[in-house]
């Protein structure tokens, strides 16, 4: 069974062309896939649909055997707790400590305090930020903030991580660091879908690539799809 299966996925906003047109693909469990394309190609829209932050206009999204389009409204937050979301802008709570930021998914889910402490420390250790628990994100560099965002995405050990331009604001060296980190999670069995327009990084890696152009999937791995 595929971990992510999108069938004829279409999204259109009013008064604009389709942001996504009949996109169909499948991602197997434990795969690490890059989603590429120019700005406006539909990468972020696709990730938002997968993260149930938006509803598709047409088509189906089946994640881990569940059609998320058919989910009831109250089931969506529960679904979101099962995936890890990483954003270009890490979406941190700047007035809260690093610990509080990373602990947030666990607090929402209702973990015990001692388990929260243990997992937050482990996640921060993975992103090399152990010792930064009491810091405020506003005092951290962009790279560090992004790593806090990653720690928050992995702290509840999701089976899927959706990352939207996680290296977008970072220099090549830091970008490499972040990709290395994501690779480590993949090696532990996590399925990753990473949207990036940074072709320099992707071309050095041998992962499957989905390429979008004006909302259409034009390439899947090394196979070119003729639209």
């Amino acid at each position: 069974m595929a971990m992510i299966y999108c069938s004829q996925l279409t999204k259109h906003y009013s008064h604009t062309a389709n942001a996504l047109s009949s996109v169909t693909f499948k991602i197997e469990p434990g795969e690490m896939v890059f989603l590429t394309g120019h700005s406006g190609a539909g990468k972020s829209t696709l990730l938002r649909l997968l993260g149930s932050l938006e509803h598709p206009s047409k088509g189906d999204i089946i994640i881990n055997g569940r059609n998320i389009n058919r989910m009831k409204k109250r089931e969506i937050p529960v679904f979101r707790r099962q995936i890890g979301l990483i954003f270009q802008n890490p979406e941190l709570l700047l007035k809260r400590s690093v610990f509080d930021n990373v602990a947030l998914p666990l607090v929402i889910t209702g973990f015990r305090q001692h388990e929260i402490n243990r997992r937050v420390r482990a996640a921060l250790d993975k992103v090399s930020l152990l010792g930064y628990e009491k810091e405020k994100p506003e005092n951290l560099s962009c790279g560090e903030q992004q790593r806090v965002g990653i720690a928050r995405a992995i702290v509840h050990r999701p089976s899927i991580i959706l990352a939207d331009e996680p290296t977008g604001n970072l220099d090549p060296e830091l970008s490499k660091e972040i990709i290395d980190l994501l690779e480590q999670f993949n090696q532990l069995g996590t399925t990753l879908l990473i949207a990036s327009h940074n072709t320099h990084i992707i071309e050095h890696l041998s992962y499957r690539t989905l390429k979008l152009q004006t909302g259409q999937l034009i390439e899947d791995a090394k196979e070119t799809i003729y639209v």
Partner: peptide, 16 residues
């Protein structure tokens, strides 16, 4: 507002 948005993103219910 920002905090509310982030919590919603991470799966916090409206009630929470």
């Amino acid at each position: 507002q920002d905090e509310i948005r982030v919590i919603k993103l991470l799966g916090g219910t409206n009630r929470f």
